[in-house]
């Protein structure tokens, strides 16, 4: 087990290096940079050149990359061109705000998803199965950013029950108002994981159930809690894998939902950075989100291996 974990960790290093190169190149290809937006069009050329030198944009690409990598290894993500604040501090602040939504959304989405999936599988082909399948398919087919606006119209503007936008607390919700500001974004975010997880769980449970030993047990009238436990255990690796990926999606994909709810998370930060051409912020945000995704995959692999030793090699 330990050697498996170490091997997976080592495999992650070249991936992360590749990711860093890819992120760097992608961001470099964006036309213009924050200076173009910040300085008026009649700004003196020497001022522009000086600012470029300030951020190292005057150096050859490979030097810029190595400099960035060197800073990365020292935990330094650079400084925002737009407001001179350290990217790392801003980003971790924003990531915290994203996690505040992502974790409850994951709990809600995964919880409902597993419940719906297992229930559907156990009622395979019956009305309950059909109904739940429609619910989960709706979850993955809805443009959720649009659904979010519909929710705001109903619950904030018309009924005035919940705030329309913004995070009504500093780091963690401690008041009723704070919690209320989380309700709509969490519901919106949980839709896709709910849909995906319930479909995966349903399929995984059905597959285990179709295996002969379950049928044998079933035939012998030994259908019991332990059989269900066995089914769930065998369906777990696939479920875990999809949950890991979905959690990554919640972090990276929150950009649309955060835009609608004006939530100061990492998605919002990235959107802002793209529109402002704030290269250090863009690089830092994409890299950290991708690195997190790689790490998450790694954790899922190890967890799967723990549950199902066959996966280890």
């Amino acid at each position: 087990m330990l050697s498996f974990t170490i091997r997976r960790l080592l495999q992650a290093i070249p991936i992360l290096l590749g990711v860093s190169i890819l992120v760097f190149l992608m961001v470099q290809m964006i036309p213009g940079n924050a200076l173009d937006l910040m300085l008026p069009s009649d700004a003196p050329k020497d001022l522009i050149e000086k600012m470029k030198a300030e951020y190292g944009f005057d150096k050859p690409l490979w030097q810029q990359y190595l400099r960035w990598l060197w800073m990365l290894l020292h935990g330094d993500l650079g400084v925002s061109i737009f407001d001179s604040t350290p990217v790392a501090a801003t980003l971790f602040d924003a990531l915290g705000n994203t996690f505040v939504l992502a974790i409850p959304a994951a709990v809600l989405g995964f919880g409902l998803g597993i419940f719906f999936g297992v229930t559907a599988a156990l009622n395979n082909g019956k009305a309950a199965d059909k109904a739940l399948s429609m619910v989960s398919i709706t979850g993955v087919s809805l443009p959720h950013y649009w659904f979010a606006i519909v929710l705001v119209v109903i619950f904030s503007v018309e009924l005035n029950w919940l705030p329309a936008q913004g995070m009504q607390f500093d780091t963690l919700p401690s008041t009723v108002e704070g919690l209320k500001s989380m309700v709509l974004p969490v519901i919106t975010l949980s839709l896709i994981p709910m849909g995906v997880v319930s479909r995966v769980v349903r399929a995984a449970v059905l597959e285990v159930m179709s295996q002969e030993f379950v049928n044998t047990l079933n035939a012998k009238g030994l259908w019991s809690r332990s059989v269900l436990g066995h089914i769930l255990k065998n369906a777990a690796p696939a479920t875990l894998a999809v949950m890991g990926l979905q959690f990554g999606y919640l972090l990276g994909g929150s950009i649309l939902v955060e835009t609608v709810f004006n939530w100061p998370g990492s998605g919002n930060l990235l959107n802002l950075a793209i529109f402002r051409r704030d290269i250090p912020v863009m690089q830092g945000t994409i890299l950290v989100l991708a690195a997190f995704f790689v790490l998450l995959n790694l954790v899922v692999d190890v967890a799967q291996a723990l549950i199902d030793p066959r996966i280890r090699r």
């Binding site: 991936i15 992360l16 590749g18 990711v19 890819l22 992120v23 992608m26 961001v27 990554g248 999606y249 972090l251 990276g252 994909g253 950009i255 649309l256 990235l270 959107n271 793209i274 863009m282 994409i286 989100l289 991708a290 690195a291 995704f293 790689v294 995959n297």
Partner: peptide, 13 residues
């Protein structure tokens, strides 16, 4: 390497 990016993030980037 490409797979390390959540889909929407990659599309937006």
């Amino acid at each position: 390497i490409f797979y390390a990016f959540p889909s929407i993030l990659l599309a937006i980037a």
